[in-house]
Amino acid sequence: MIDFAEMRRAMVDAQVRANDVTDLRIVAAMLETPREKFVPASLKNFAYIDDDLLVKPGTPARYLMEPMVLARLLQAAAVAPDALVLDVGAATGYSTAVLARLAGQVVALEEDAELAGQGTRILEELGLLNAAYVQGPMNAGWAGEAPYDVILLNGSVDEVPPALLSQLKPEGRLVCVVGRGRSGRASIYTNTTGGIGSRIAFDAAVPVLPGFEARPGFVF
């Protein structure tokens, strides 16, 4: 029988701690969250590899981000225990479950009804009562619970829509990967008194989050 708890510890030691994730709250949250519950049955044995995992094939396909990138994004976001977080593109809810152990309340935004249903069932099974799914266009955010202390985008995007940035609290932070493949950069957007500031945190390559493609420019 596979020892998922041991696999989880190995993942945290080799992928999270070894990649400059020093926030012990994140380490503890990932040790407590059973990633194998969030992937299809055929992938449970691979739940803790250092790679993105396909949770729904198709066009577009949907993935869980690799644990190292997720952990580093969460560390960059500096999620406080009382934070209100919007988890965009939550898919089956692994990132939401980790965030629920870090934050005060988590809103999981997902536009795919099947994925949202799966995620809701898993969160209920784990007893994570401070996280809930909402369904709607991911690139529009969820204004009904805004403003947020932290917004996480679960995948790479060509650009961050102004609608999402407008849902940040003062000093609120949005974290995501901007750019595709080797051009991907984990970026932090902060709502400052002078407007939205941004900085690059590290290089990262993760699957595309659909709906965030660059708008076509004008052709003269």
Rank of each mutant, 00 (worst) to 15 (best):
Ala71Ile: 10
Asn139Lys: 06
Lys37Cys: 10
Glu66Tyr: 00
Leu128Ile: 12
Pro207Arg: 05
Ile49Val: 15
Glu6Pro: 02
Ala41Gly: 01
Asp20Lys: 01
Val134Arg: 13
Gly144Ser: 03
Ser198Cys: 10
Arg180Ser: 07
Ala83Trp: 03
Ile2Pro: 12
Val107Ser: 01
Gly181Trp: 01
Tyr48Lys: 06
Ala116Thr: 10
Glu114Trp: 14
Lys44Asn: 00
Ala132His: 15
Gly181Asp: 05
Asp51His: 09
Ala97Leu: 10
Met1Pro: 11
Arg101Thr: 04
Leu70Asp: 04
Glu159Tyr: 13
Ala47Ile: 10
Asp13Ser: 14
Val219Cys: 02
Arg180Leu: 05
Ala214Val: 12
Met7Ser: 09
Leu70Glu: 13
Thr22Lys: 14
Ser183Leu: 07
Arg185Thr: 12
Met65Gln: 08
Thr59Val: 13
Val219Lys: 08
Val177Ile: 12
Gln167Val: 05
Gln167Met: 09
Ala28Ile: 01
Ala146Thr: 03
Gly119Cys: 12
Leu74Ser: 09
Asp51Asn: 12
Ala201Lys: 12
Arg25Thr: 07
Phe218Pro: 00
Ile2Arg: 14
Ala146Met: 09
Asn45Cys: 03
Leu165His: 04
Thr92Glu: 04
Tyr48Gln: 02
Ala113Ile: 09
Val39Gln: 02
Gly179Gln: 14
Ala29Gln: 01
Asn139Gln: 14
Arg25His: 05
Ala143Pro: 04
Glu124Ala: 15
Leu126Trp: 11
Asn130Leu: 11
Asp51Ala: 14
Ile151His: 04
Leu53Arg: 04
Glu6Lys: 15
Leu152Asp: 02
Pro81Leu: 11
Leu109Gln: 08
